[in-house]
Design a protein around this nucleic acid. Structure first.
Ligand SMILES: [Mn+2]
Ligand SMILES: [Mn+2]
Length: 549
DNA sequence: ACAGTACAGTTATCC
DNA sequence: CTGTCCACAG
DNA sequence: GGATAACTGTACCTGTGGACAG
């Protein structure tokens, strides 16, 4: 059985020699033992990997973890690998390494230093141009130069060059192990160095990120298309591929987000038709707002309202209702808008005149309030979302089936899913029950002590010092916190944004929240909604409108 | 519904 | 020569 | 002059050394 308990992966500081090899073995073994049904195209690689000696495995891992596929022999010297020549020969024999590979012009430009380019050009052209720039010297080659040539043909007397093979194998294993494309081997290292600590979780063989190979491939396709958009490839081509994807299951949201972004790019390029099509297909609420705005010039007032109402049906989040309303009735005060069911209470606003300084405006307001006897912190979302996470920690990290599949997760996969709480009813009930107890403050402080530093996506530990938690628990009424937690559970993704900038405490144990606005800044919708909610709940919150001078 | 996200600051444009 | 960037390392 | 949209910057481990541009 693979060992997935982070505490067992943790080593003394500094790292052991061969740490990267051990990490790679952990990853590879884990994948082949648990996901062998997803790795059918890569069966030979398993035995070819097993057949390698320690130094050859180590050298391979070193190469796979570096950027690109091409390496000069002199770049493959590592102190722990005593016999690099033997390792290279082994890798070559088992088809991990290609000596004297075919190299494209782009690859050539990438792997050579300018000093090497000088030598190469001297041989090929018989002269060395005086000015050599990294991104233009390829143009000095004769126009009929082949796009691809064997390395030895590019530079007959040049140093030895190798191409490492099966990079796709390695990328796929990493994707399988982590279950996402954003984590990599550095997570092992950071965990071992104790730069990060992860919640230890019992491991279960049913916890797999991908149910089958099709899902894995679809994930990769989505990723490729996202990168293509980033790289500025033609939007039409990307859109065509995106539209052609089959049912994506749990990845539908990623597709919708990508369609939204692609539509923005299409609009930027003037392709309004494509933008409309993408935003029509995407179920992302922001896409509906964009769609309405795009169509607005073509519609009469009544049609606009009708379309807005229609789009509103498919959008659950009030944040986006406000945005839809703004398209239809721009510059209308919130109280006059109609769809929210109840009018949005306008927030209390206080004014403050300050001399414009170097610091951020929030810091300046803090100082000004300190002179009026209010000590405080710039906390943004971190305080309330952090307290929330402490309170519901056992539910967040409950070992629900399918929620955790790698040892370096800072949240369960379904944290933002609407069904998150209902899948954890018992443990949620426990958390609420503990919260109702008289000694809830003590319990939360103990939780802070126990979990401090452990990675949790809802907590930024530097912004949640013990003193702040103590002060917050001492001064904020329990009903206020309960109300805030309840609203957070309604839509964790959207409601964990837009909480006020500052929390302030006075000598009598009162507190107040403050959203700071510089003259050029405006309230965002999420901030409006939180402020209105707090107003209703009797939570002391206001907007501090700063003026300069 | 699942790694891009959050917020402030700047500019341009509209009304 | 200097500062910036970025790949790499732990 | 306020509202609005669009875009940018910065943070998410830290340190080092080579390569490059000026
Ligand atoms: Mn803020
Ligand atoms: Mn603010």
């Amino acid at each position: 059985m693979p060992k997935l308990d982070p505490s067992q992966l943790r080593a003394a500081d500094p790292l052991q020699p061969w740490y990267y090899l051990h990490n790679a073995r952990t990853l590879i073994n884990h994948c082949y033992q648990l996901y062998s049904d997803l790795l059918t195209p890569w069966q030979q690689q398993w035995s070819a990997w097993q057949a390698l000696g320690q130094e050859a495995q180590a050298l391979l891992v070193r190469m796979l973890m570096r950027k690109g596929e091409l390496f000069f022999a002199r770049q493959l010297i590592y102190s722990e690998i005593k016999h690099p020549e033997q390792a290279l020969a082994e890798l070559q024999a088992l088809d991990w390494l290609e000596p004297d590979p075919e190299v494209s012009q782009a690859e050539l430009a990438n792997c050579l230093t300018l000093a090497q380019v000088k030598e190469l050009l001297a041989q090929r052209l018989g002269r060395v141009p005086s000015k050599l720039r990294a991104n233009t010297w390829l143009g000095l080659l004769p126009a009929d130069t082949a796009e691809h040539q064997a390395w030895s043909a590019w530079w007959p007397q040049g140093p030895r060059l190798y191409r490492v093979k099966h990079q796709l194998w390695w990328q796929e294993l990493q994707l399988l192990f982590f279950g996402n494309a954003h984590q990599d081997m550095t997570d092992f290292v950071l965990s071992e160095l104790q730069t990060r600590r992860y919640e230890p979780l019992p491991w279960h063989p049913d916890n797999r990120p991908f149910a089958n190979r099709e899902q894995l491939l679809l994930y990769q396709q989505l990723n490729t298309l996202a990168k293509a958009l980033e790289a500025g490839e033609p939007v039409c081509a990307i859109a065509a591929q995106l539209m052609a994807l089959p049912e994506l299951g749990w990845m539908t949201h990623s597709r919708d987000k990508l369609m939204l972004r692609l539509g923005l790019e299409a609009q930027r390029q003037g392709n309004l038709e494509l933008a409309e099509q993408l935003w029509h297909t995407s179920q992302h609420p922001e896409a509906k707002v964009r769609l309405l705005r795009l169509l607005k010039p073509r519609l009469r007032a009544a049609e606009l309202v009708a379309l807005g109402l229609e789009l509103r049906q498919g959008v659950q989040q009030p944040e986006y209702w406000l945005a839809l309303e703004r398209v239809i009735w721009p510059r209308q005060p919130l109280e006059q808008r109609q769809w929210l069911g109840q009018a949005l209470t306008a927030p209390k606003v206080t004014s403050l005149v300050l001399a414009k300084g170097e610091q951020r405006v929030e810091q300046q307001v803090l100082q000004a309030m300190a002179q009026q006897g209010w000590q405080g912190q710039h906390v943004e979302n971190h305080l309330f979302v952090g307290l929330f996470a402490l309170c519901f920690w056992p539910a967040i990290f409950a070992p629900v089936k399918g929620a955790f599949f790698n040892p370096f997760q800072d949240r369960p996969r379904d944290l933002f899913h609407p069904d998150f709480a209902s899948r954890r009813q018992d443990i949620m009930a426990d958390c609420w029950q503990q919260w109702q107890r008289e000694d809830y403050r003590q319990l939360l402080l103990e939780r802070w002590q126990a979990k401090q530093g452990t990675a949790c996506s809802l907590i930024h530990w530097p912004k949640l010092p013990l003193t702040l938690v103590e002060q917050a628990l001492a001064c904020i009424a329990k009903e206020h916190l309960t109300a805030i937690f309840t609203r957070l559970w309604q839509d964790l993704r959207h409601h964990s944004r837009g909480l006020p900038d500052l929390i302030l405490f006075d000598q009598q144990g009162n507190y107040q929240l403050m959203e700071v606005k510089s003259p050029t800044d405006r309230l965002q919708d999420q901030q409006r909604l939180w402020l209105a909610f707090m107003q209703q709940q009797g939570i002391p919150a206001c907007v501090c409108q700063v003026r300069w001078q």
